[in-house]
Amino acid sequence: MAVYCFDTLVAHYSGDQPPPPAFEEGIHPLFVTWKKATNGSEPRLRGCIGTLEARQILTGFKEYALTSALRDRRFPPIQSKELPYLECTVSILTEYETAVNHLDWEVGKHGLIIEFTDPDYNMRRSATYYLRCLPMKVGRT
């Protein structure tokens, strides 16, 4: 799945279609994370966007590979010259459950979704941390 996301980004810059994926279709919430390492440094976040709503993973990974690389508002768009320095991690979210209290989770085992209403703007906000996922990292050289 991470290879497919990488192929999707490479195809974006080459103007080609990515090769067909080597994974089965499914319906899950998902995230695509890009990190960049240069000169032997620790990889740093370069983009991460996904959805908490279940999506067809084939179209979801294709869409979020590009969205997280090119439209994460926290970072400038990834440029083609950065491709050799990138790592991609994909996350498929599973087994949601409501916590009994704020301590009802384990670091390294569970993810955390925080939802609240911003009292200053009366807007619903949410954030996701350490996803419980099936990770796979892929880097290109």
Score class of each variant (00 low, 15 high):
residue 85 Y to F: 09
residue 131 L to T: 07
residue 28 H to A: 14
residue 18 P to M: 11
residue 10 V to A: 09
residue 20 P to H: 08
residue 47 G to R: 07
residue 1 M to G: 01
residue 84 P to N: 04
residue 43 P to L: 12
residue 72 D to L: 01
residue 22 A to P: 06
residue 34 W to Q: 08
residue 42 E to G: 07
residue 79 Q to E: 14
residue 129 Y to D: 11
residue 84 P to M: 10
residue 99 A to I: 08
residue 104 D to V: 01
residue 114 I to Y: 12
residue 78 I to P: 00
residue 42 E to H: 10
residue 76 P to V: 00
residue 54 A to H: 00
residue 76 P to F: 09
residue 47 G to T: 08
residue 113 I to C: 13
residue 20 P to I: 13
residue 57 I to Q: 12
residue 20 P to F: 12
residue 25 E to F: 03
residue 74 R to G: 09
residue 125 R to G: 02
residue 17 Q to T: 15
residue 13 Y to W: 01
residue 4 Y to A: 05
residue 133 C to E: 00
residue 135 P to C: 08
residue 65 A to G: 14
residue 14 S to D: 14
residue 115 E to P: 00
residue 32 V to T: 09
residue 92 I to A: 04
residue 44 R to L: 13
residue 125 R to L: 10
residue 76 P to N: 01
residue 95 E to R: 11
residue 85 Y to I: 03
residue 71 R to F: 11
residue 24 E to P: 06
residue 132 R to F: 09
residue 127 A to R: 15
residue 5 C to D: 05
residue 2 A to W: 04
residue 1 M to W: 07
residue 20 P to R: 15
residue 79 Q to Y: 09
residue 72 D to S: 02
residue 10 V to I: 13
residue 125 R to E: 13
residue 76 P to C: 07
residue 70 L to G: 01
residue 68 S to Q: 10
residue 37 A to D: 03
residue 7 D to Y: 02
residue 132 R to W: 10
residue 36 K to R: 13
residue 89 T to V: 05
residue 38 T to G: 02
residue 36 K to P: 03
residue 31 F to H: 09
residue 134 L to D: 10
residue 105 W to G: 00
